[in-house]
Each structure stands twice: as C-alpha cells, then as structure tokens.
Design a binder for these strands. Structure first.
Lengths: 207, 207
DNA sequence: GTCTATAATCAGATAGAC
DNA sequence: GTCTATCTGATTATAGAC
C-alpha cells in the first residue's frame, strides 16, 4: 500500500516535471527567436499544446516563464563548466566558455531578455535557483579571469569585473546574428572571428 | 505681397520643423532610456506637451517616430565624421568614431531598437534619409577599415564587414551600462576600458 | 490540472469638432 | 494642426466547469 502510493506520487511528479520541461524548452526557443516582449503567452501555450490557463497553473506569470528558461540555461552553463579541466589553462577555459555561449546563441537556444524591464528583473532577482546559478558561474569565471591575469595571459590592467561582463556580453552580441544573416560565413567561422576580436582585439598583433 | 507670402510660409514651416525636432528629441531620449517596446506613444505626446492625435499628424506610426530618431542620430554621426581629418591615420579615425558612439550611449542619447521587430525594420529600410545616412557612414568607416588593414594597423585576417559590425555594435554594448551601474568607474574610464577591449582585446599584449 | 470562456488592461491608431 | 473622446486589437491573467 505504502509503496504503491510512493510509486504513484513519483510517477505523477515525473509527468509534471516532464511537462514543465517541455514548457521551458518552448519558452527557451521563443525567447531566443523573438525576445521577451514579442513572445506571447498564447504562443507558448499553443506551441506546447496546452491551454493558456493550464500554463498559468505551472508558472504564475510571463516573467516566471522567462526566469525558468534562464534557470535552465544557467544549469546548462554550470554543467558545461563542470566538464572543463580544473588544472587546464584558465585562459583556455575562458575561451571555451565564450565559445560555448556563442554556439548556443547561433543554435537559437540563447534566450534574449530586455535588461531594462523592471518586472523581469524582479522575477530574476527573486528566483533563488537563477541567482545561485549566476553566482556559481560568475565565481568560476572570476577565478579563471584572476588566474589568467596573474599568469600574464590576460591584460591585468582591465578590472576583472569588466572582463566578466565582456564574456557575458557574448551571449547577446549582435555581431553574431549580423554575420549569420550575411550568409558569407559558416557558424564555425563566425565563432572563430568573434572569438578573435574578443580576445585578440581588432588591432593587428605583432608577430 | 509675394514676399509677404514667402515669409509667412517660411515661418510656418519653421514652426513645424521646430516642433518636429522637439518630438524627435523626446523620442530619442525615451528610446535611449527604455527602448522601443517600453516607450509608449502616450508618453511621447505627454512629454512633448501635445495630444497624441497631433503627434500622429506629424508621424503616421510609432515605427516612423523611431525611424525619425534614427535619422537624427545618423545625421549627428555624419556631422562628427565630417570633422575628422581626411589625412589622419585611419585607425585613429575609427577609434574616434567608436569613442563618439560610446559617449553618446553613456550620455543617454543613443536610441536602442530591437533588431528582430519586422515592422520596425520595414520602416527603417523604407526611410530614404536613414538608408542614405547609413550607407554614407558605412562607406566612410569601410574605407578607413580597409586602409587600416592595408597599413597593417588592423588585423587583415578579419573581414572588413566583421570589423564594421563590431564598430556598430559598440552602440548597444551592454558592458557600458553594466560598468556604469557598478558605479566604480567614471564615464571616461569606462570608455577607455571598452575601447581597449575592443581594439586591443582581452589577451595580454607583448611589450 | 486541464479546459472554454471571459475579464481587465493597455497601447496604437482614428473620428470629428474647432 | 490641435484637441477630446473613442475605437480596435492584442495580451496578460483569471473564473468556473469537469
């Protein structure tokens, strides 16, 4: 009797979680494709294949939908960072993260949120999972940045926080989409180009 | 009689133009402050001090308002570019334009438009003044980019178009606002930092 | 929890008097 | 051209039956 109940509950929870994951996948794609404002809740519901009211039972607001998608992306980032060698060169790890970020964006899986929307900001700041993930990722990147600066691999005159922001900014770099729209370069070429401008700069480098 | 008419018409036109310039100033500031989606036409009208219907007599849609603001900014860019020495080092001129762009943004006068909005894209593409300005600016920058590459001042392995996009992208670089929000650096320091990461890159440079 | 149907609101755009 | 008042449509969110 007891075990039957346990199994039943667990099964229900699995169904629930699976549905929420499906919702988050859809939201993630729509956010990447058209951004927060242009994404409507109707679209999300229709795309998932459930009624809008049902959607609101899972997530109490549009902002919470977006936050859930961001949590999902942050988890993926944490997972990727965990695969990088702890004893690798800090600069290599940083480059790997930047590359991963741009790959995600070119694949159409990087949500784009307006940084000005205050309700959205509140939803993100109030989301424990998101903030924890953000802090963990920032700590990992921050440690690599400082290590790379101590090694003389990264310009030590630039404040670490500016480097961190510059890395994060690759997630919404319009140069990627513009080059992609141009159709003259493959995704891999685009990534190499932007990686180069990001780390090496536009100036010619002495041999 | 004839001259009186001419003067009268000219005066009316001046009034009209002055009002439209006031509208554009307001739109420019609002676009810089909150972006296209968050800016409402009601706000614009209230801020200018006229009724919404009157606003629509001047500009037939919200998109046209934004396009007019972009034309205004493009003119300012053309005016700035015209002040740069024709015989100056191409790299210096490019840096000057990037610096000017970031100063505009930090001053809260750089409109920010969503690159995905198709109605807005159509309004911009259909605006002769905007397109002409964009092409003229791009031609000037493009010439400097190629010259700098031939001189060996800018990395010749990067396609000129990628350099151009990278320059334009400074107009919406979130690193600027993030650093400004941090409050740890002056506007001038922020500009120097981003200028450095843009042209010199994050990597340490050999002495 | 899921649905249909509807509320409530907001924003872009317009009618029509002056 | 400017105004007040209104329309229209889209969008977030909810009520209430099953």
């Amino acid at each position: 009797m007891k075990s039957s109940n346990v199994v039943k509950v667990s099964f229900k929870e699995q169904m629930l979680q699976a549905r929420e994951e499906a919702i988050i996948r859809v939201v993630n794609l729509l956010l990447a494709e058209k951004g927060f404002e242009a994404m409507t809740v109707d679209e999300v519901a229709a795309s998932v294949g459930i009624a809008k009211a049902s959607l609101y039972k899972h997530f109490p607001s549009k902002e919470d939908l977006a936050a859930a998608a961001m949590v999902s992306v942050m988890r993926r980032a944490q997972a990727f960072i965990a695969t990088l060698p702890r004893d690798g060169a800090p600069l290599d790890n940083l480059r790997a993260v930047v590359r991963w970020t741009m790959e995600l964006k070119l694949a159409g899986e990087m949500p784009s949120l307006p940084s000005q929307n205050s309700k959205l900001r509140a939803a993100l700041l109030g989301n424990r999972s998101y903030m924890d993930g953000l802090i963990e990722v920032s700590d990992a990147l921050g440690a690599w940045i400082e290590a790379a600066q101590e090694q003389g691999a990264i310009n030590a005159k630039i404040p670490a926080i500016a480097i961190l922001y510059t890395v994060y900014a690759r997630a919404c770099d319009p140069v990627l989409e513009f080059l992609k729209m141009g159709g003259q370069h493959s995704d891999e070429q685009i990534i190499e180009l932007v990686l180069s401008t990001c780390f090496d700069g536009l100036n010619a480098r002495p041999v």
